[in-house]
Each structure stands twice: as C-alpha cells, then as structure tokens.
Amino acid sequence: MSDAATSTPPMDVFIKGLWRDNPVFRMLLGMCPVLAVSNSVMNAFAMGAATLFVLTMSSTLVALLKNFIPKQVRIATYIIIIATFVTVVDYVIQAISLDLYMALGAFIQLIVVNCMILGRAEAFASKNSVPRAILDALGMGLGFAFALFLLGAVREVLGNGSFLGFDLFGPSFEPWSVMILPPGGFFVLGFWLLIFAYMKERSEARQQEREEAPHGG
C-alpha cells in the first residue's frame, strides 16, 4: 500500500483532497465545525483558514518526526502536536479580532478533536515524506475550507439575505431564518450531499452508456 501511495504523482496528492476525496462531502469527516460555524461566510472562511493552518503545520511536524515517534503512543503524540498548534491559532485569532473570536466560540479550540486532522496524520503524514505530507494537507485543508464556504454561502444568503455582510435583496426580503439556526445546517449539508450524489449517479450512467454504445451499435 505504501508503494502505491508513493507512486502517485505529487499533483494528484494535492488535487484529490479538493474534490475526489473531499473530507466533508466524500468522507464525512470533521462534521462538527462544518455544521456549527457555517452560519455566515465570514465565520466559515475564518474556520477554514484556521483548520488549514493547523492541518498543514501538524502534518509537517508529524512527517518530520515519524521515525522518532514510538508506535504505541503515536495517537497521543499526534494529539499533543495538534493541540499545540490549535493553542497558537486560538491566541492569534483572539489578538486579531475579538468579534470573530466570540462568534466562533469554543469551536476554535475544538479543532483539536476534528477527526480529519488526526485522520490525515495517521493515514498519510506518518507514512510519507515531508513535501508530500504538506501537499496532502494543503489539498485536504483547501477542500475543507471550500466545503465550509459552500455551506456558509447558502446559509447566509437564504437565512440572512446577505453575502459577507452586504445586503443582497433589499429591505423587502423576508429572511428564511431557520437556515442560520441549527436545523438549517443539517438541511443544507444534506441537500449538498443529495446534489453531489445525483451528479455522480448521472456521470456514472453516462459513462456506462458510452461503454455500451459501440457493442450495441
């Protein structure tokens, strides 16, 4: 398996996290922050950036230290590494914008238990070289941020009638406020998954048709 992993071209390592193995839409990892802080585009963007930073830094460190970490305590070591970077991010966000810090609440500190980060450390960074681990982390982190953005955009536009704080529809718009409340998070993510499943099914059906056509004709 490690042979197969090292033979994929670097570009593929980067691209796969963005779409084909998207952590949110395909692997359903790290759901808690995705649902909780995607009620506006700004929050989603900040959360995506924070997660991207923690993921990249911890993957780099894990890949660097992979020969020194004993097998038995590896999970505990990864968690401590992740917790260190999360503490850094927590203090940085608090220093940059207190409003943002209040809006994200405990979810910045909860990046520690985002299963996607631990999952990438265990499944990829601990088996690959540093540059590949960085590429993988960047791809996965961007894919995560992209998914957060998709959710945040839909929820803010429908639930608040605005995008990044700018009013879109004017004063006569009646906001669909359930969308920024907790149930909206579940619904919007559910509908995105439905759309992706539909697209996948259609492209598979089309491919099947293409394969069958020469034989049939």
């Binding site: 998070g185 579940f186 619904f187 993510l189 559910g190 509908f191 998954l193 499943a197 099914e201």
Partner: peptide, 14 residues
C-alpha cells in the same frame, strides 16, 4: 438511491 446513506441521515437530523 441518491438519498440513501449520509444525505438522508442529515435531513433526518435536521
């Protein structure tokens, strides 16, 4: 068939 699995679970949770 497209709703089977995660999508349906999420809508239920909603």
């Amino acid at each position: 068939s497209i709703a089977r699995g995660a999508a349906l679970t999420l809508i239920l949770a909603g």
